[in-house]
């Protein structure tokens, strides 16, 4: 049991990294990785939102939407799973909004750090993608908790290392037209190769 959970965590951070292996959250990854401090801020915001929305969506999926989930109100034949896309995105948008209001109310310092990134996160594909993967891989509740947190950590690891590399790249002298996005993509490719090598290590 514990071994399995550790496996899910390590897999979602390294070999099955949500960004480098499944390409999710690329848009904000490329746009925000220019500065290391904003990268750290966005990384923490993503971990925070993912660890809340993934288990929450698990509960919603397994008690409202999955085939047979409505047996507790006497409707065992109803299958609402086709509603999962719209439901998940609504939950994510609502949670992000709620978190924004709560931290604005209770911690000005945290709001200054995370607040600006929260609206960006509602449409980050990594968040919705993690919830959808959680359904597809049949995780249990505890597993979905670990998986959400692990995916967030993996995403943060990727964006911080990218930001650090891009600081060095400012002093590089790439060929004409290569500056900016093309170079960022190729560097990401090389990083993805490095992360894949973790799959050779058996945990």
């Amino acid at each position: 049991m514990t071994e399995n959970l550790v496996g899910i965590f390590l897999n979602s951070v390294f070999t099955g990294n949500i960004l480098l292996a499944y390409f999710l959250g690329m848009c904000s990854f490329v746009a925000v990785s220019k500065n290391i401090n904003t990268a750290i801020g966005l990384g923490f915001a993503v971990i925070f939102v993912l660890s809340i929305t993934t288990p929450l969506n698990w509960l919603i999926y397994h008690f409202l939407l999955a085939p047979g989930a409505l047996y507790w109100i006497g409707l065992p034949d109803v299958n609402l799973s086709f509603l999962k896309f719209i439901m998940f995105i609504a939950v994510i948008a609502a949670v992000v909004q709620a978190i924004e209001i709560i931290i604005d109310r209770f911690s000005a310092a945290l709001y200054a750090g995370l607040g600006v990134f929260l609206p960006l996160i509602a449409v980050n594909c990594a968040i919705l993608g993690t919830s959808l993967f959680m359904v597809e891989r049949d995780h249990t509740f505890i597993e979905s908790l670990i998986f959400g947190f692990g995916s967030g950590v993996g995403w943060m690891l990727a964006i911080i290392s990218m930001a650090a590399i891009r600081i060095k790249l400012r002093y590089a002298n790439p060929p004409y037209g290569m500056e900016g996005y093309p170079l960022a993509m190729i560097v990401t490719g090389l990083m993805a190769m490095a992360f894949m090598l973790f799959s050779g290590i058996s945990f």
Binding site: L20, A21, Y22, F23, Y176, G177, M178, Y181, P182, L183, A184, M185, I186, T188, G189, L190, A192, M193, M196
Partner: peptide, 18 residues
């Protein structure tokens, strides 16, 4: 594998920019 996609798209963007 995944890394190849990143590298190919990087090269394509480079090509179009040039």
């Amino acid at each position: 594998l995944a890394p190849a996609a990143f590298i190919i798209i990087g090269l394509l963007i480079w090509l179009q920019k040039v």
